[in-house]
Design a protein around this nucleic acid. Structure first.
Length: 346
DNA sequence: CTATATGA
DNA sequence: TCATATAGG
């Protein structure tokens, strides 16, 4: 989810649309949960069923991860996937409320199925998506076999990705959410995919990758610091207070922080009396100083092709032919990157 | 979401 | 070669 409202505040001149190839040679710390969730949401049959192996285990996340990763590497991009750890205590209420919403959607889906309303089944199925621990483990195993680095975050994955970008371990953080900027990533890459066509209603619109720089965002909004951006986000709503402040939208939030200078000041003045589900200053602390580790390595390896085949073909019933083709593309892309003197993967 | 088949 | 439809697991 993240802070969707914040997107409305980020003007066009702080965004830069790019072609995938323009990111060649750059490394990006990708929010793995974000990616897996999207694969699970979109890689489905028309009736809403995800891809599954013969034992009924969902494989949509592996399908998406395999091909997306190959495409990125082919474009010369070095992906590093960052997995979530333990969520902050502050997120507990929101996690519970999401769980409840999914439970409700699951009931609606079952009713629609019983009543033979196929379209509704597909609709509700997309609300009942869980990225399970098993799926994350599957994804890590596949990445390891492909020779692609991944990092286990102590807490929020986006915070870890931002930390890695901030200290120069990677060029940028990749996610659909804007939280990476709040966590201090100097650059956020959104829509990092190849086929960038996305369904909007009945139409398909092109959604190219875009790079958003924190400095440009602050400048465009005339903010003094990331801290003020965090303050605005808290007014708009974050994962820790999803509803934000009632009656405060992007423009008003910006105005309040520009005028008051800080959330602390605003709380004493224009926001006096506002009820918060959790202490807003605790939210601020998480964004400004989130748990992150420096126990990681951004190291690419030769793919273990036999292992990839074992996981995808033998274990999960992928077509051997397709996987071999994918591996060949990966091998070629890596060897190309390896011989290029400008940018070595290894 | 992405690969692949299909057919102008 | 390209756009569009459909399968993938």
């Amino acid at each position: 989810m993240g802070v969707t409202e914040l997107g409305k505040l980020i003007p066009q001149d702080a965004r830069r649309e790019v072609k995938l190839e323009q990111l060649s040679g750059r490394s990006v710390a990708l929010d793995a949960y974000n990616a897996l969730y999207q694969f699970l949401a979109s890689i489905r049959q028309p009736d809403g069923t995800p891809l599954m192996d013969s034992r009924g285990r969902v494989t949509s996340h592996l399908n998406g991860l395999f091909y997306r990763t190959i495409n990125l590497v082919e474009a010369g991009i070095r992906p590093v996937y960052v997995f979530d750890g333990k969520p902050p205590e502050l997120k507990r209420a929101e996690i519970e409320s999401r769980r409840a919403a999914k439970e409700k959607a699951r009931e609606q889906m079952e009713r629609a199925a019983a009543e033979g309303r196929a379209e509704d089944v597909a609709k509700y199925a997309k609300r009942v998506i869980y990225v399970t621990d098993q799926m994350a483990e599957d994804a890590k195993a596949l990445l390891t076999a492909m020779g692609i680095p991944w990092v286990q975050a102590p807490s929020e994955g986006e915070a870890q990705a931002a930390y890695m970008a901030a200290r120069g371990s990677v060029w940028g953080a990749g996610s659909q959410d804007y939280d990476s900027l709040l966590f201090g990533a100097p650059r956020l890459v959104r829509n990092l995919a190849v086929s960038s066509r996305r369904k909007v209603g009945e139409e398909y619109v092109e959604v190219p990758p875009e790079v958003i720089e924190l400095d440009k965002v602050l400048k465009a909004l005339k903010l003094k610091s990331r801290e003020q951006l965090v303050d605005i986000a808290i007014l708009l709503g974050t994962d820790y207070n999803p509803d934000g402040v009632p009656g405060v939208g992007p423009q008003k939030a910006l105005k309040i922080i520009l005028e008051q200078g800080s959330l602390e000041n605003a709380l004493k003045t224009v926001l006096k009396g506002v009820k918060w589900p959790v202490d807003p200053l605790e939210i601020k602390k998480i964004f400004l100083n989130p748990p992150a580790t420096d126990q990681y390595r951004v190291e690419f390896r030769e793919p273990d092709e036999a292992k990839v085949l074992e996981i995808l073909v033998e274990e999960h019933d992928f077509s051997r032919d397709r996987v071999e083709k994918g591996l060949e593309r990966l091998r070629r892309a890596l060897s190309k990157a390896k011989t290029s003197s400008l940018d070595s993967f290894f």
